[in-house]
Simulated scan of single mutants.
Amino acid sequence: MSAFNILFVLVLAAYFAGATLHLLGVVAGRPGLRRLGNGLTVAGFAFHSADLAVLFASEGGAALLSGEFYFSLLAWSFLLIYFFLWWRLRLEMLGLLAAPLAVFLFLSSQAVTATRMPLPKALGGLFFGLHIGALFLAISLLAMACGAGAAYLYLERKIKTKEKLSGFSKALPALSTCDTVNRWAVAAGFPLYTVGLLSGFIWAKLTWNRIFSYDPKEITAIGVWLLFAFLFHQRLFLGWQGRKTARLAIWIFGLTLVSLLVINFFMPTHHSFARYIDGASNLPVWPQP
């Protein structure tokens, strides 16, 4: 078995075991299981980092043309943001979202490889790396805001109905902590999403001499940006907090997942992996204006 295959098994096993033990620890009220689950998730993240390094070292710049690399990198980004929030806020609860999402996306990266759907060569390069890097960090921040928003709404309903907090409910952080995650995610995520979107349009102009093509992926990305901009404005300048911002963060992340998973695979778009089966690498050439 190659080093790459060994790392794949280690990453998957550590992530899956970490997510399972974390969930069992929360439901059963066993802090020891939660800590063990977090430890395994950290180990999985270390293996995952090594896996990305091996992939890049073995393929060089060609890794940047692989759908496998980008899906794996997105899974890695989710956990990077989760660990940062865990370090700053001691918010273990977000691991219930981050670890399962990392497992799903990491497995998705292997599905892309199995069906041989490489990204076209035109999507490589440092400028596209800026586009992808900024967007992935923004999406990861949105995921954490979504998880914190769901926890906020759940806990708020429990408090309003005066239900006794037990089991899973007792493991949730205070409402103010959930709201803090939302504020941080919005404050950092919107500028990153803006950079990612603008760099993508500039890169498209340099590559195809066309900024906007009315592609479903581009239209959805602009819709996400508008909603994100509204949340950013209401949150930071008008003082929105609590239930409204929690709900909006959940909707924005949901739309982002539709863009990432549904449009990329099942709709006609020049961002789609399905257009490049069996190594085809040419993007559509639009008529010049």
Rank of each mutant, 00 (worst) to 15 (best):
R35K: 11
R35W: 06
R35C: 07
L36T: 09
L36H: 03
N38Y: 12
N38R: 12
G39Y: 09
G39S: 08
G39L: 05
G39V: 04
L40N: 00
T41E: 02
T41Y: 04
V42L: 11
V42Q: 09
G44R: 08
F45M: 07
F45V: 03
F45D: 08
A46H: 09
F47E: 12
F47W: 11
H48Y: 06
S49F: 09
A50N: 13
D51F: 15
D51N: 14
D51Q: 14
L52K: 14
A53Y: 09
A53M: 02
A53V: 06
L55H: 15
E59S: 12
G61F: 13
A62S: 04
L64H: 07
L65Q: 08
L65E: 13
L65W: 15
S66N: 10
E68G: 11
E68Q: 14
E68T: 15
E68V: 15
E68W: 12
Y70C: 02
Y70M: 06
Y70I: 06
Y70D: 02
F71I: 08
S72P: 06
L73W: 08
L74N: 07
A75L: 01
A75N: 02
W76K: 08
L79G: 11
L79E: 14
I81T: 07
Y82E: 02
Y82N: 01
Y82V: 04
F83W: 10
F84V: 15
F84E: 08
F84P: 07
L85C: 06
L85A: 05
L85S: 05
W86Y: 15
R88A: 14
R88T: 14
L89Q: 12
L89D: 08
L89T: 11
L91M: 11
L91P: 05
M93Y: 10
L94N: 01
L94G: 03
G95T: 01
L96D: 02
L96I: 00
L96E: 02
P100H: 00
L101P: 01
L101Y: 02
A102S: 04
V103S: 00
V103E: 00
V103I: 01
F104N: 00
F104Q: 01
F104D: 01
L105R: 00
F106C: 02
F106V: 05
F106E: 01
L107H: 04
L107N: 03
L107K: 08
S108D: 02
S109R: 10
Q110Y: 10
Q110P: 05
A111F: 14
V112L: 06
V112Y: 05
V112C: 01
T113F: 07
T113K: 12
A114T: 04
A114Q: 05
T115K: 06
R116D: 15
P118K: 04
L119N: 04
L119D: 07
L119M: 04
L119G: 03
A122G: 11
G124P: 10
G125P: 03
L126P: 13
L126H: 15
L126T: 15
L126G: 13
F128A: 11
F128I: 15
F128W: 15
